[in-house]
Amino acid sequence: MPETAPNPATQLSPQAVQDRVDTVRERIAQACERVGRDTDEITIVAVSKTFPMQAITSGVAAGLTHFGENRARALRDRVEERPGQWKGGDVCWHMIGHLQTNKAKFVARHADRFEALDSPRLAEELDKRAAKNDRVIPCFVQVNISGADQKYGLPPEDLHGFLNACEAYEHLKIDGLMGMASFVDDSETVRSEFAHLRTLAETYTGGAANVSLEHLSMGMSNDFEVAIEEGSTMVRIGSAIFGPRS
């Protein structure tokens, strides 16, 4: 029999989302307990990309406040419908996808946080756009910890030099790193990649006021428990909260 397409009205109902959020929180608690961490250290970023606004409404009802989008114009449309914290709203909008420099204006105008800073050219353009909007944008630098050619992010060996260069950007606040592990069943490969990102943060010795690596954004629906065990402070979770995408 052919698979039945997901029914958003059922899949994204407040109760369905609440049940999944409760399960995710329990899994987070178990991962924290294994390594002696506090669950308060972990922020869930619900990846709402491609889902209707009903997902946001149900997510907020379940106690979520952070949501992630991966396309600049889609983020703009979301914020226009439900303003983020920078605009006085009740949610925090994360831009989590690769950003072309010509789309930096959307992030500067609408995002509460940008998680995919990965080039000097983009940093320069985003800083310029943020200045025009009279704001400082919190950013994570994305690092290609898997080494895959198709993945975005700085090569790990370029990270510290890039962070030093970011000290010059007065309208960017670099307060963490983001990385995506290989999509494989080998948990030890995944663990080593997350551990590498943590080590890159721990070994950075810069002292600029606008560069302080307080956060590690790593871990998605398939690997967030390992990420938490390796030091993640933000996990980006989509399908485990909202169900499969149609």
Rank of each mutant, 00 (worst) to 15 (best):
P2H: 15
A5R: 12
T10M: 14
L12M: 09
Q15I: 06
Q15K: 14
A16P: 05
Q18N: 10
Q18V: 01
Q18K: 12
R20E: 13
R20A: 14
V21D: 05
D22A: 14
T23H: 09
R25E: 07
E26P: 03
Q30P: 02
Q30I: 07
A31R: 01
R34C: 03
G36R: 06
T39Q: 13
D40R: 11
T43A: 12
I44A: 06
V47P: 00
V47I: 10
S48Q: 05
S48V: 05
Q54T: 14
A55W: 02
S58H: 01
G59L: 03
G59C: 08
V60W: 09
V60R: 12
A62Q: 02
L64A: 04
T65I: 12
T65M: 08
F67I: 06
E69Q: 07
N70T: 02
R73V: 13
A74C: 08
L75K: 01
L75P: 05
L75M: 11
R78A: 04
V79A: 11
V79L: 05
V79Q: 04
R82S: 10
P83Y: 06
D90E: 15
H94T: 07
M95I: 03
I96H: 00
I96E: 01
G97S: 10
L99I: 08
N102D: 11
K103T: 00
A104P: 00
A104H: 00
V107I: 15
V107S: 03
R109D: 01
R109N: 08
A111Q: 04
F114W: 12
F114M: 10
E115D: 14
E115G: 04
A116Q: 09
S119K: 02
R121C: 03
A123C: 11
E125R: 09
K128F: 13
A130R: 00
A130L: 03
P138D: 05
P138N: 06
V143G: 03
D149P: 13
Q150M: 09
K151I: 04
Y152F: 14
Y152E: 14
Y152W: 11
G153C: 04
P155E: 15
P156A: 10
P156V: 07
P156D: 06
P156Y: 06
E157K: 14
D158Y: 09
D158A: 15
L159Q: 07
G161Y: 09
F162P: 01
L163F: 01
N164Q: 15
N164P: 00
C166T: 06
C166D: 05
A168V: 07
A168D: 10
Y169W: 13
L172S: 00
K173P: 09
D175S: 14
G176D: 02
M180L: 14
S182T: 15
F183G: 09
E188Q: 12
V190M: 08
E193V: 07
H196V: 04
R198H: 10
T199N: 10
L200A: 07
A201M: 12
A201G: 11
T203D: 11
T203Y: 06
T205L: 12
G206L: 05
G207K: 15
A209K: 13
A209N: 09
A209L: 06
N210V: 11
V211K: 02
L213G: 00
L213P: 00
E214M: 11
M218D: 06
S221D: 10
N222Y: 10
D223F: 01
F224V: 03
F224S: 01
A227N: 07
E230I: 01
S232P: 13
I237P: 01
S239K: 15
A240Q: 11
A240V: 08
I241Q: 09
I241F: 08
F242M: 06
G243E: 02
R245W: 11
S246T: 14
